[in-house]
Design a protein around this nucleic acid. Structure first.
Lengths: 195, 195
DNA sequence: ACTGTATATGAACAGATGTTCATATAGAAC
DNA sequence: GTTCTATATGAACATCTGTTCATATACAGT
């Protein structure tokens, strides 16, 4: 047999990426086989290779897409007045952006070690670019005397680590609204870097 | 052929656990084969089954051991005077304990989804017990009026997430000593939960 | 209606996987 | 020195792995 009814590239391509995303997030890259991804799409394993040269590329492009969208969305924000307001904006943006993409976030964090060295280097560079945006804010606030951190690099990583913690417990429809979560985390971040 | 020179249970057992620990941490549970573990020990794959019923048990016991040692070490600490001092002690303990066991920490966090449901439930219970110790401190301080957090549960998770961030970047022999790291994080935690 | 191509199938590949087991032997106990 | 058992081997198992490819066919363009 061969080509099936309704088969089309514009449809199958995204569905493969979606299936890979969801399966990688749930079971981990190494634990998911090409046949499982194909089955989720309703296709045979061989068909995947019309859309990706190999399994590694599937992972890499998911991660790069996510990081590029993150950076684009962040730089599309309106500029803010002063470091405090910028930090508040960063906290809100980070929480909301990541909440909407739990699978992508999970993969971008957990599957770094399954990238080839070259792919890892590229993803890592994008991640650092994002971290640098936060560090610039802290640095600015530090020099303006409105923040007081012992080390801006460490504070950057500490704030991001803290914010990422949200993803491990927040479920929409739970006890707290996104607004409340944002407010709570902003309180803690603000105080943590305060003078 | 069969039993080799120098073979002994007291030696091989720990070496298998050590090899599994190190390989799981570096490449992930799903990506490591029993043959790789055996090769690291210098033994054939079949020999592993004198020490573990299966691969899953190997992972489970590594994680349970780690969590139990964590809880034991924490409860062995001298009691502190008041919530502020208790929190400072917790921060220092957490950073130092986890720094000494980077592989165990990494596995305990990353490989939860590779546990069977029953094993997962057990490990998760131990983790919650540890979190509860911190939450009790925050709760106490909140009621005594020395801390001010909107939600003790969230603050607990936020503080632990922030502290765990250390493991992703700290390398001994780097720019900062453990004492400095501890001091920097304590400053941030203290301020984050301050009134 | 006819043709060309994009898109799927399904079989095949070489090798890896977790696990079992009959067998051999090193070292302890007597 | 003999016996016993704990501890290893290495082959075998059924199944799964990522990937390739000849082949078939649904759809688009004419």
């Amino acid at each position: 047999m061969a080509r099936t009814q309704g088969s089309h590239s514009d449809i199958t391509g995204p569905r493969i990426r979606q299936a890979a995303l969801s399966l990688f997030a749930r079971h981990g890259y190494a634990a998911v086989s090409m046949r499982q991804i194909a089955a989720e799409v309703g296709v045979q394993a061989g068909a995947l290779y019309n859309y990706t040269p190999d399994k590694q590329s599937l992972l890499y492009h998911l991660m790069r897409n996510h990081m590029e969208e993150l950076l684009e969305a962040y730089s599309a924000l309106d500029p803010c007045d002063g470091p405090v307001e910028s930090l508040r904006q960063f906290v809100g943006f980070h929480i909301r952006f990541h909440m909407k993409r739990p699978d992508e976030v999970f993969i971008a964090y957990m599957e770094l070690r399954n990238l080839t060295p070259e792919n890892f280097a590229e993803i890592e560079a994008l991640r650092r670019a994002y971290e640098n945006a936060l560090e610039a804010i802290l640095e600015q606030g530090q020099q303006a005397g409105v923040f007081s951190v012992a080390d801006t690099k460490i504070a950057t990583l500490a704030v991001i680590a803290m914010l990422n913690g949200v993803m491990t417990w927040y479920r929409s429809g739970g006890r707290l609204s996104l607004d409340q979560v944002e407010q709570i985390y902003w309180d803690m971040v603000r105080k943590a870097v305060a003078v």
